[in-house]
């Protein structure tokens, strides 16, 4: 990592530090938020701007280093953008379903229109 001009090294440095700091803050949120439903929001920091800025840093670094456009990081960005909401939705729904079955007071009760007990295996 030696022959990178300064005008490229500075943004790469800033993006790397910003992205990893956001990922760390998100994971700290996993540790110190109180309930599961509050913690669900914490990793989103890393999976949106966090990984986004690290991918941008990597794109910039390799494009300048190889003196051609290296764009395959875009692939991972697309994949992360599509997959993170899906996993979070599935997980939150599963957690809600489990809490509702246990009758927890922290979650809204089952609505009459929600699927009744027939889904219980």
């Amino acid at each position: 990592m030696n022959d990178l001009p300064l005008w490229a090294a500075i943004p790469v440095t800033l993006l790397l530090l910003f992205g990893s700091a956001l990922a760390l803050i998100g994971s700290i949120g996993l540790v110190n938020l109180r309930s599961f439903y509050a913690r669900v929001h914490a990793p989103t920091l890393g999976t949106t701007l966090g990984i986004g800025s690290i991918l941008l840093a990597s794109m910039l670094y390799f494009s300048v280093l190889r003196t051609r456009f290296v764009l395959h990081e875009l692939l991972m960005a697309v994949f992360i953008v599509l997959s993170t909401p899906v996993t979070l939705m599935l997980l939150t729904r599963a957690a809600l379903y489990r809490d509702q079955r246990e009758g927890s007071s922290e979650v809204p009760a089952v609505l009459p229109s929600d699927p009744p007990e027939k889904e219980v295996p």
């Binding site: 509050a38 989103t44 949106t48 909401p85 229109s113």
Partner: peptide
């Protein structure tokens, strides 16, 4: 809409009820 809301930190789309068209959102 689900992807936009869930990708935004602080809101998570939880459930959608197609019979009355309401959705359940969790907000931090």
């Amino acid at each position: 809409l689900a992807c936009i809301l869930t990708a935004t930190p602080g809101t998570v789309w939880v459930d959608y009820d197609s019979s009355d068209g309401t959705m359940l959102l969790h907000v931090l």
